[in-house]
């Protein structure tokens, strides 16, 4: 689980992009694209390089009808997976 005070940040060269042809949000990286589902997009929408993981989870818990622990676990797994693909930095 990501610590609450860790700050996720999308690195230089990677950006969230609206694919108007397919009508979906994607994470665009050099020579790769990661299509985002609604919750993935909601998580990355809150990744601004200044908000901590704890703040992001709090925002998601206010917007979604789900237990905070479940949101934190799912968001942590999602962001860790993006970090492993080198399309997200986790600053501690």
């Amino acid at each position: 689980m990501i610590d609450a005070d860790v700050i996720p940040e999308i690195p230089r060269g990677v950006r969230v992009h609206r694919d108007t042809v397919r009508n979906l949000w994607v994470l665009l990286a050099p020579e790769r694209v990661l299509p985002l589902d609604d919750t993935g997009q909601a998580i990355l929408d809150r990744v601004d390089g200044t908000s901590s993981f704890g703040q992001i989870v709090t925002g998601l818990a206010e917007a979604y009808a789900a237990p905070r622990d479940q949101i934190a676990a799912d968001a942590s797994e999602f962001l860790t997976s993006l970090q492993a693909r080198r399309v997200l930095d986790l600053k501690s």
């Binding site: 694209v33 589902d37 919750t39 979604y64 009808a65 799912d74 797994e77 997976s81």
Partner: peptide, 12 residues
């Protein structure tokens, strides 16, 4: 809104 576990797939 309903929460669902986010999925990741990666895409020449």
């Amino acid at each position: 809104m309903a929460w669902s576990k986010p999925t990741i797939r990666e895409i020449g």
